[in-house]
């Protein structure tokens, strides 16, 4: 991976939108600091979707971008400045694996299914993770676990 950014969908520059966007992301970082860190990485990977929720819950999001986001979120898990940031990086990296499996049927980690299942189940109760993402991970968990009974 060299440049994980899609540069085709940047927001309108230099206009009111850019000013509002700047204020909006600053406010977002004040209100939800850990989630904001995850969203900024999602924006780096896919400016058009621009947030972790949008990237991870869109069935049409390209697998390549989900892979890239997972790598960067995993790095946030390892090198984030705050504990909340690192925790969010960990959760979103798992969620990326869940999205790849749910929407594309691909396993993008080296873990076996049992480890993946355990990881998915660690995300769903975490209230810090956006609800839409937890719902997606729960669906992936069901798909991986297979039909019950």
């Amino acid at each position: 991976m060299t440049d994980p950014v899609d540069r085709t969908n940047r927001p309108d520059p230099a206009g009111d939108g850019a000013i509002r966007d700047t204020l909006a992301w600053v406010l977002h970082s004040i209100d939800h600091p850990a989630q904001a860190a995850g969203d900024w990485i999602a924006y780096e990977v896919d400016p058009a979707r621009g947030s972790a929720v949008a990237l991870l819950t869109d069935p049409t999001a390209p697998l390549s971008r989900i892979r890239r986001a997972r790598v960067l979120w995993a790095a946030l898990r390892a090198e984030g400045e705050t504990a909340e940031e690192r925790a969010m990086g960990s959760r979103l990296a798992i969620a990326a694996a869940a999205a790849a499996f749910l929407f594309h049927g691909e396993r993008i980690t080296s873990h076996d299914d049992a480890a993946m299942l355990a990881a998915f189940r660690s995300v769903t109760p975490d209230g810090a993770v956006p609800a839409e993402v937890r719902t997606m991970v729960r669906m992936a968990e069901r798909k991986l676990a297979g039909p019950v009974g």
């Binding site: 600053v26 780096e44 790095a75 946030l76």
Partner: peptide, 20 residues
């Protein structure tokens, strides 16, 4: 690349702090 992305996260946070 993660060195770039983590730097961006750190700097966005710092910028937000200054603006606040």
């Amino acid at each position: 690349p993660s060195q770039v992305s983590n730097t961006i996260v750190s700097m966005r946070r710092a910028f937000a702090g200054h603006l606040l």
